[in-house]
Design a protein around this nucleic acid. Structure first.
Lengths: 239, 239
DNA sequence: TGGTCACCGGTTGCATGCTACTCATGAGGG
DNA sequence: CCCTCATGAGTAGCATGCAACCGGTGACCA
């Protein structure tokens, strides 16, 4: 039904391309880039690139250094912790509400999405698995009927991806995460919203811990302990 | 110690000015504006205005209509509810954690900020009251040590301001809100984090209800009931 | 009279020129 | 030998030119 999708504005396209370049690892954190260079590479003028970079800066993906160029932000462990602190607060209640509001078709669709995760995981396609996992969770959250919350969560997830791609898919941890999802689905099918909240909470917490230990292990001289402690520092105050 | 604060970029300044123009009511929701017109009015070229508008669009304050100009978004009651649903989930645990982490100086500063709210309220300066209230809450949240959460909350608050300026300051409700703040401070001084969470939760919930009934009363044929019900639809699932 | 279409004012979107700024390098002085 | 400072290469930031595009209005035709 789309009328050939009159191609979106260049600025928008460039934004997406650059974001993809970052999450795919093509543009590396800490590295320096110039708007003029990126413009040439993409075959457009500096203006849309510059505007795209400003938007990405607002997302927290890059930092613009006045008259110096742009730098992909090397997300610190501290910021990763902050993001997960937020996710651990937000996602459980949203998922629980989603469980209440879900129709039978929604539940069927969830199981379908779950199937796709398993397929991708079985095929050993890490990127695809991550993508499918994201869709699964975002669909669940969207059932709560709060579009802004869903969008917010999507952005938080994207941010982590810039650091997370490498570290997530170890086989052992992949199994744990799969078990978590199984728990979520079981609770969903029972329409036990409290159990859904609990399962989601554990799932996100586990993801956070995996990521943190992973990142800190590749950064010698950094103790994961301190950061692991912080993860549920906020969530435990949820009344 | 600041080296004369080399003035921020024009784009940034324009962004702030336009945002202020929206929240102050100078630019009205639903109204149509052109980048070229705004640029003339501000005495700058179209480029920084255009870039500022793109950033504001990302914040959700305006919508850019291709080749047509820009429109200040008329926030729907539904979106207001969504924003408060998020705030009611986020703020209580953050405030509670802040209560744990606060130093004695922090507590003193909080009381100072509280004093400023009372002053502004006594002087009958609505705008100033709102501003002081924002600072109070954001400072409390910042004590939790999660800068991203604080920034997020600031943005959510700004969004509501585009609709909220008019409706908040009725004398009766102002007193209720002041009482809430009193509760928050009492709990803070006792370092009773659970009570802080509870008090914040009630405060935000009350604010939401005031705003919703206010807005719906100025929009005839709209029942507030439906929206009021939704407010804590998510928060009640906080385990 | 009703409908279609061409035109036109107004706007954004992108490209590009120019200025001012930042940082690094290297020469010159102490 | 070290420190200082001038110079230059490279950059973002802003202004402006130009084309493509949208929507409305009025003329023209059936």
């Amino acid at each position: 039904m789309q009328p050939v999708t009159t191609s979106a504005s260049l600025t928008t396209q460039v934004t997406d391309m650059l974001r993809a370049a970052v999450t795919s690892g093509e543009m590396r954190p800490g590295e320096h880039y110039s708007a003029i260079g990126l413009a040439e590479k993409l075959g457009v003028s500096r203006t849309p690139v510059r505007e795209a970079l400003q938007l990405l800066e607002k997302e927290g993906i890059v930092r613009i250094e006045k008259n110096r160029g742009v730098r992909v932000i090397q997300m610190s462990l501290d910021e990763i912790v902050q993001i997960f602190q937020i996710r651990i607060i937000l996602e459980p209640p949203a998922a629980a509400r989603g469980a209440e509001a879900a129709t039978d078709e929604d539940l069927a669709h969830i199981q379908e999405l779950h199937g796709k995760i398993l397929e991708a995981a079985a095929a050993g396609d890490g990127t695809q698995t991550l993508q499918a996992d994201k869709e699964f969770h975002l669909f669940l959250l969207s059932l709560a009927g709060n579009a802004r919350l869903t969008a917010l969560d999507r952005e938080l997830r994207n941010l982590v991806l810039t650091r997370g791609l490498v570290t997530i898919p170890t086989s052992r941890s992949g199994q744990d995460l799969a078990d978590d999802r199984r728990d979520i689905i079981d609770a969903l099918l029972r329409r036990d919203s409290a159990a859904v909240a609990q399962a989601v909470r554990e799932h996100v917490t586990r993801t956070a811990k995996l990521l943190i230990t992973g990142v800190s292990s590749t950064t010698p001289g950094l103790s994961a302990e301190e950061y692991l402690r912080k993860i549920d520092q906020l969530a435990r105050h949820c009344s």
